[in-house]
Design a protein around this nucleic acid. Structure first.
Length: 429
RNA sequence: GCGGUAUUGGUGAAGUGGUUAACACGCUGGUUUGUGGCACCAGUAUGCAAGGGUUCGAUCCCCUUAUACCGCCCCA
């Protein structure tokens, strides 16, 4: 037996319907905010991610899917969405052809070579937004509220934003130095990981799972005390606008995000009663420039759809997901079967959801199957009736049964079933 | 990359070093030869993740591998 590769999932049945619904909500909310859908390649040049993310962390060295293609090009499966969007912005010179800021959103699979756990896979899906070309705190607030409102529209009423600011480069350098100064006397007492972090990524010491319980962590320097005036002013504006947007948030100085390219606003979107971050993002004013484009301030975020869907299902949130059929066509003999084939096509093209029998089961089994599909109506074909131009329709809720003229069937369904009608699109001139 | 726990039909699972691997749901057929959902009857794993070893004998003990889950690293 061939199994799916490690860290991948099959999404099917109810779960697949939830996914589709979530994606529909995302699309419709994005439309209201006038964010344009963008699809960038699933694989890019390895260099894009190495330069974009920076080589400081383990991410680039061991957590991407890298390979050489047959033309000896270095290729990487995208581990996240931002780099591709930024590359596209630069390559298509969007800074010249669009009115800034450019507001885009994406939704697709990402690939990370990690040890899988629940809600953490090697092939994962994320939707996200990027806004390129504005350094107004208003857009930070809008982006955050967008993530918040999508959760709200999905019924996740207890979402909360954990918000922080890393300030500009000066502020961050000062803070990093302050952290080092503070922890230096305790260096021997820190865990092995933190000793490593001390030199590589001191900001990460703050949220260490082992050391953060220690007494002297209570008085550790807080990033917010190290913001210079401009950075502080920017952060205050973001908060002020978030209040206007009625976003529920807390200021959480432990949110640092892993990557070098973030500055100023950083945030994660959480569910209040558990510790799981659904996603996060922040401002990255230097990435476009680093990747060879003009200096362009940007802000964005990404949310993991796997976790989002998992949360919706775990919380048993009622979603308006339709999963019943309008009519189940039952038959036994060949003549009836032929009529079933004709009828199913006709009704489907008239906009009704129709199921029928495909394996010549007994009539009894067909009833069970119709119930399994929660069919509203049963159409029970009978050769004798058909010869007289009659057809038996049974309402599966009231159990009332009636015979009607075959030619009135679609009219009957139009009367009795409310449904989304669809029509063939006309060819464009 | 490191550590821990687990893996038994379509599903939930019980179980033991010894001839036929519980029970339940589901599914198929029948009682009812074309009107179901109830009831009853029958069928439904030559098999206990894969491979190897110990043993007279392994689903059970040991080893290896795979996968899943939990923790660590990391978390874009």
């Amino acid at each position: 037996m061939i199994n799916k590769p490690k860290g991948t999932i099959d999404i099917r049945d109810y779960e697949a319907r939830v996914w589709k619904y979530v994606e529909e909500v995302i699309d419709s909310v994005m439309e209201k905010y006038n964010y344009n859908y963008i699809r960038t390649p699933i694989f890019e040049s390895t260099e894009l991610f190495h330069r974009g993310i920076g080589n400081t962390t383990d991410i680039v060295t061991k957590e991407t899917y890298d390979f050489k293609d047959r033309g000896d090009r270095n290729i990487t499966l995208r581990p996240e969405g931002t780099a591709g969007v930024v590359r596209s912005y630069i390559e298509n010179k969007m800074y010249g052809t669009h009115n800034l800021p450019v507001k885009v959103y994406y939704n697709g699979t990402m690939y990370r070579y990690e040890r899988p756990q629940a809600g953490r896979y090697r092939e994962l899906s994320q939707y996200g937004v990027e806004v390129l070309g504005s350094n107004d705190p208003m857009i930070d607030a809008e982006v955050i509220s967008l993530a918040y409102n999508i959760n709200k529209m999905l019924g996740l009423k207890d979402s909360i934003i954990h918000l922080n600011s890393l300030g500009d480069k000066e502020s961050r350098d000062n803070y990093r130095q302050a952290l080092k100064d503070y922890f230096k006397p305790h260096l021997d007492d820190l865990c092995d990981d933190c000793k490593e972090r001390f030199s590589k990524n001191p900001l990460r010491i703050i949220d260490c799972k082992i050391d953060s319980k220690k007494d002297y962590f209570k008085d550790a320097p807080n990033i917010l005390d190290y913001l210079n005036e401009a950075s502080k002013g920017y952060f205050d504006k973001v908060c002020e606008y978030l209040d206007l947007l009625e976003v529920k948030y807390v200021i959480d100085p432990k949110i640092v995000r892993g990557l070098d390219y973030y500055n100023h606003t950083v945030f994660e979107i959480m569910i209040e009663d558990n510790n799981l971050a659904l996603g996060g993002g922040g401002r990255y004013d230097n990435l476009v420039n680093e990747l060879g484009g003009p200096k362009t301030p940007c802000v964005g975020y990404a949310v993991g759809l796997d976790r989002l869907v998992m949360t919706l299902i775990n919380k048993k949130i009622k979603l308006p997901i339709k999963y019943n059929v309008d009519a189940f066509i039952m038959y036994v003999n060949e003549d009836e079967k032929k009529y079933a084939i004709y009828l199913s096509n006709m009704l489907r093209m008239s906009g009704f959801v129709v199921e029928t029998e495909y394996t010549n089961r007994s009539l009894k089994s067909q009833f069970k199957r119709a119930d399994y599909f929660k069919s509203k109506y049963l159409i029970i074909l009978n050769s004798e009736d058909l010869n007289e131009g009659l057809i038996t329709i049974k309402n599966n809720e009231t159990k009332e049964e009636e015979k009607i003229m075959t030619e009135y069937l679609t009219y009957y369904f139009d009367e009795h079933i409310e449904d989304d009608k669809y029509e063939c699109l006309e060819e464009q001139e």
